[in-house]
Design a protein around this nucleic acid. Structure first.
Length: 429
RNA sequence: GGAGGGGUGGCCGAGUGGUCUAAGGCACCGGUUUUGAAAACCGGCGAGGGUUAACGCCCUCCAAGAGUUCGAAUCUCUUCCCCUCCGCCA
């Protein structure tokens, strides 16, 4: 969310952001709604002022004056009752449009419409040249009996799966490795609620535009979160933070739920795109200062890279273009891990992490403020980045570390988390 | 799930239909005093919005929403949250 005063004064800048971010929104409709809302408000406030005046006069009025004032009070009340619905309507229209205004991309964000316009920053690690025919994760996991593919699809629907045996152990292991890495780096671990109210979804920017992406628990008016970013940011909703308490750095561990509406038929094979997964997510609140935020941003990125390096997975980092960054994001880096089995076995870099700065977008929507050193109130900046998301990360993990016989040599860092096992061997049928 | 008690400014807390423009205290900030500090005394001290060149003026906010009334922190209804007890339960 942007400040309406800012929008009024910088309409062209905002218009450009709307266009570059490919958001569907007519800014003039918003500006008109804002004008309408203020016009009606002015009319109503005039009458409310009179209403208050009359209420104060009545107790002091003489016997003769009193009935006259009460009559006028009644008339003002009726007038207000007639005007108020139009204020409610104007306010609602305005609020709805305001929630659709994107934040402004940082100057370094490249202009572009699709991921082809993202700018590669660096590649780390070199994809292996396999001297044998490499298997993809579906083959490997089937071979190791790491997944039950069929049972869950019967009782839980498409894109369902059950991690079994070594597959389940691997998820716990990479999760714990990520958690330990982040705790060591000073983040506070949080296991938050995964069912939240609408305000948390709206407050973090996932609603109203991403509504169809979330699972709704209608009986209780709750929603399943698609990332623990939602409850972690909401942890401080309606609060005024002390400047001294910033930065606040959290690492959330949770299951994440995504309907993948609009992705039907896409990535249906294997565990790349699923409805339910486990994720360790980093969330930071910092002072509203671009330089501070930038430093935090690269720290979050560095944390994710450190985890990938521990897992010995080759990856690349790309700066997402304007068309690829979300409504609230002002800058986003994607970390793409090398997955040898993708792209018909030719291999491809695919997104496993996403590192974003959101400026004050979420803080404004979630009503999170910070007392600045000069005594005034401001909105803290928020940032987030994936630390690990499983099972997606198991794809590059297994595919990159496989051997010709289908066994998988675990990266050293993971061995302690797998109870000392160094090589996973296919289970005999 | 059942019964009961609560929710007032950063915190504590008074307030049960009209001078509530929310008392008082604590905390905080400024000043006087002091070598400095403390204490004492004096003053200041919430947020959001509208309007204005500015000073200022106005509106809204006593958990949230709706209602009664000329007028609501106060009365009614609904919801949320906290506490106590009972029930159920990993």
């Amino acid at each position: 969310m942007l400040d309406i005063a800012f929008i009024r004064q910088n309409a062209d800048t905002v218009r450009a952001a709307i266009k570059n971010k490919r958001v569907v929104l007519d800014l003039d409709t918003l500006l008109a709604a804002d004008k309408e809302r203020r016009d009606v408000l002015l009319e109503i406030e005039k009458r409310r002022a009179r209403k208050n005046e009359i209420a104060q006069l009545i107790p002091k009025a003489s016997k003769e004056e009193r009935p006259v004032l009460i009559e006028e009070g009644k008339a003002v009340k009726v007038a207000l009752e007639q005007l108020e619905p139009s204020l409610t309507a104007a306010q609602r229209a305005y609020d709805d449009l305001m929630l659709r205004v994107p934040s402004l991309p940082r100057p370094e964000v490249p202009l572009g419409a699709s991921e082809d316009d993202n700018v590669e920053i660096r590649k780390v690690g070199t994809p292996r040249a396999f001297p044998f025919k490499a298997k993809d994760h579906v083959e490997l996991m089937t071979l190791h009996k790491m997944v039950d593919w069929d049972g869950p699809r019967k009782y839980a629907g498409g894109r369902s799966y059950a991690l079994m045996g070594a597959g389940a152990l691997l998820e716990l292991a990479v999760t714990r490795l990520a958690v330990d890495t982040l705790v060591e780096r000073g983040l506070t671990i949080v296991i938050p609620p995964v069912m939240v109210r609408e305000r948390a979804m709206t407050g973090t920017g996932f609603f109203p535009l991403g509504r169809e992406e979330a699972y709704a628990i209608s009986a209780d008016e709750l929603f399943l979160v698609g990332t623990s970013e939602v409850p972690l940011v909401s942890l401080h909703c309606d609060e005024t933070l002390d400047a001294a308490s910033l930065p606040i750095r959290y690492a959330g561990v949770s299951n994440c739920f995504r309907r993948e509406a609009g992705a039907s038929g896409k990535d249906t094979k294997g565990l790349y795109r699923v409805h339910q997964f486990t994720k360790v997510e980093q969330v930071v609140f910092c002072m509203p200062d671009e330089q501070v935020a930038e430093k935090e941003h690269y720290q979050l990125l560095g944390n994710a890279e450190a985890i990938l390096e521990k897992l010995e997975i080759p990856y690349r980092v790309a700066l997402a273009c304007t068309g690829e960054i979300g409504l609230g994001q002002t800058r986003k880096h994607e970390v793409e891990s090398w997955m040898p089995g993708r792209n018909d076995g030719k291999g491809a870099y695919n997104e496993t992490h996403s590192c974003s700065t959101l400026g004050d977008f979420q803080a404004r929507r979630s009503n999170i403020r910070v007392r600045l050193p000069d005594g005034t109130l401001g909105y803290p900046y928020t940032l987030n980045n994936t630390a690990i998301a499983s099972p997606r990360i198991l794809i590059p993990l297994l595919e990159n570390h496989q051997n010709e016989d289908g066994s998988v040599t675990l990266p050293k860092a993971l061995v302690p988390y797998m109870n000392g096992v160094t090589v996973l061997r296919p289970r005999a049928l």
